[in-house]
Design a protein around this nucleic acid. Structure first.
Length: 561
RNA sequence: GCGCCCAUAGCUCAACCGGAUAGAGCAACGGCCUUCUAAGCCGUAGGUUGCAGGUUCGAUUCCUGCUGGGCGCGCCA
């Protein structure tokens, strides 16, 4: 429909250029948008406003000329000029109703597109170090990152989900020391407890399993405990595997799967870190000062230079980061999106600067970042800060256990990444109309119920009869639903392009609202076969889009509630 | 002090690369279940989009300055 209108307007411009009414050199990107207010018709274009200046005419006057030159089309019943010069189009019912046929025809594919042309995209998200269970912040990253991947897949990209983690640094040593302390019967209150040791209950669990000689299997490793409390390296190996498994279980419970787990240690083992240093030094972007090796990142927009190699000879985290991203580039990812907590935003400029200094043709501003702000969890209006499992933070699993996977995913992905999020446990777990997840799922279940009812009555849905009678869907409420359905592909495209998963959540809420309104206004189970089937067709199309949208968020679409 | 992000109804949040009268939900008030699931619907009320300027036909959206909040400013990650 939208495309039809664009081509009509295009036709008008061509005609007017021929007639000399419009200058030939005029270039216009024709924009047609669905209207917010149905008094403005179904679609509107600001073309006359855009062209007014180059055409040397007043907007409303130009709008009149454009309308006069508009080719006839059965899909458009009325065209009006409104406001400062908008051209409003009223779609014929039959034309608008075609979306129902289209949705039923496309099924799961409705809303999907090939915009990405199979281009490889890598999305790195979560990337938690294996030092504890995943916390809410990781949860937000997981929800946003996974939804983003689903959006990119739906728009035709070849997506790789990647999880990067450090399995060897100072913090991992700290983990091993903490487990060792527990294995030796020490607690945080003891004088010899490691400085900055991890205190959660899970540390004791790891220690117990280690002493018991347990085996753990994670996605990318399998380790059997040695049981010797004096062997710190063995403890470390076991602890990392144990927490990798723990995080695997967190992610599994959350319904997120990764294609690649990338180990920071592999960059050292394969000499990638050394290579990166060498390249940076050769390019003349480094210098030594106070026993450390520095990279002149200020030459690439950073506000201070950064240490690459500490005076003790170890590298800072920053260097493997650069090596890792070089690796991504070398794997052929022209588009890489890093989903991270905004508390790490300072790494963005740094990593990009390092990549520029490599001088290997990586574009400025590569890779892309999606940064999410902090999450605060509240219960009964009070911030929740502790969890038995992890000690000082709320875990993803705590939330899933308490409010369920659907609500957790929805709540964490339904807000813009760059605004702070308050996760209200009471709201998320309430089985009531306060809860937006249920509002959407209920709409889906309602259609399913409707379908069951007709089947019970021996009035099975007649697909052909429905499609032949879509013109009967005449009420304002039905039209509102149809117009909403028609917008879905555009919303998906936009959400993917802008990397904004929350747009899907928002869309689903409005679609569910349109549907509930329609449900109350228009009865589906009527005697008239043609009418009943047409309406049922609309219901089924709505169900399909709700399902497709929920699937993009990784949220289930229950058949009954 | 410097950098990044945010500020929209009493509360939680939307607003589709600048569009028409800024929208939902919750909370408040008034209605709707012998009829497809009331986890729903209809109606009423609620706003100087933090403040002050600027850009233009038009600004919640873009720019500048301020105020308030979050995060960061390690040879930690």
């Amino acid at each position: 429909m939208k495309d039809t209108i664009i081509s009509l307007l295009d036709g008008a411009i061509v005609t007017l250029k021929h007639q000399g009414v419009l200058p030939n050199d005029i270039q216009a990107v024709i924009k047609v948008d669905p209207t917010k207010d149905k008094a403005h018709g179904d679609y509107a274009s600001n073309l006359a406003l855009i062209l007014a200046k180059p055409a040397g005419k007043k907007p409303r006057e130009l709008a009149e000329i454009l309308i006069a030159a508009l080719p006839q089309d059965a899909a458009v019943t009325k065209v009006e000029i409104a406001g400062p010069g908008f051209i409003n189009f009223f779609a014929a019912t039959t034309a608008a109703a075609q979306v129902v046929a289209q949705v039923l025809d496309c099924g799961d594919a409705f809303g999907r597109s090939l915009i990405g042309k199979g281009e490889k995209v890598q999305v790195e998200f979560v990337s938690a170090n294996p030092t504890g269970p995943l916390h809410v912040g990781h949860g937000r990253g997981a929800a946003i990152g996974d939804c983003l991947c689903r959006l990119l897949e739906a728009t035709g990209y070849d997506v790789t989900r990647e999880f990067y983690y450090n399995d060897a640094g100072v913090q991992i040593r700290n983990l091993a020391l903490s487990v060792q302390a527990r294995a030796k019967g020490l607690g945080p209150e003891d004088a010899s407890w490691p400085k900055d040791g991890y205190r959660g209950q899970y540390i004791s669990d790891v220690a117990d399993d280690y002493l018991a000689g347990a085996s753990v299997a994670a996605d990318d490793r399998h380790v059997t405990a040695k049981g010797d409390p004096d062997d710190l390296d063995a403890i470390q190996e076991f602890a990392v595997a144990w927490l990798r498994r723990e995080q695997d279980l967190d992610l599994k419970a959350f319904g997120v799967e990764f294609d690649v787990y990338f180990l920071e240690s592999s960059l050292y083992e394969e000499g990638k870190v050394e290579e990166t240093v060498k390249r940076l030094v050769e390019n003349g972007h480094t210098y030594e000062d106070a026993g450390a090796l520095w990279l002149r990142t200020t030459a690439f927009g950073d506000d201070k230079d950064r240490v690459m190699r500490k005076k003790d000879g170890d590298y800072t985290y920053f260097l493997p980061d650069v090596a890792y991203h070089l690796n991504k580039w070398q794997r052929g990812f022209k588009t890489v999106i890093n989903e991270q907590g905004a508390d790490h935003h300072s790494t963005v400029t740094r990593v990009r600067a390092g990549l520029q200094a490599l001088e290997v043709g990586i574009p400025q501003g590569w890779p892309d970042y999606v940064l999410h702000q902090m999450v605060m969890v509240t219960r009964s209006g009070v911030e929740v800060k502790i969890s038995k499992r992890a000690g000082s933070y709320v875990t993803v699993r705590d939330l899933i256990d308490e409010v369920g996977r659907d609500a957790t995913r929805f709540f964490l992905a339904a807000r813009r990444a760059d605004s702070q999020l308050t996760f209200d446990i009471d709201l998320a777990r309430s089985q009531s109309n306060d809860n937006p997840v249920y509002y959407i799922q209920y709409a889906h279940a309602r259609v399913c119920s409707m379908l069951r009812k007709t089947q019970d009555a021996g009035q099975d849905f007649d697909h052909d009869l429905a499609l032949a009678n879509l013109a009967l869907l005449e009420s304002d409420q039905e039209k509102a639903v149809m117009n909403r359905l028609a917008r879905f592909p555009g919303v998906v495209e936009n959400a993917a392009k802008n990397r904004e998963p929350q747009q899907i959540a928002q869309y689903l809420l409005t679609l569910a609202g349109d549907f509930h309104t329609c449900y109350n206004a228009v009865k589906v189970m009527v005697e008239d076969d043609t009418l009943r089937n047409a309406r049922l067709g609309l219901g089924l199309a709505t169900r399909q889009v709700l399902r497709n949208g929920l699937d993009l968020m990784g949220v289930s679409a229950p058949e009954e509630m």
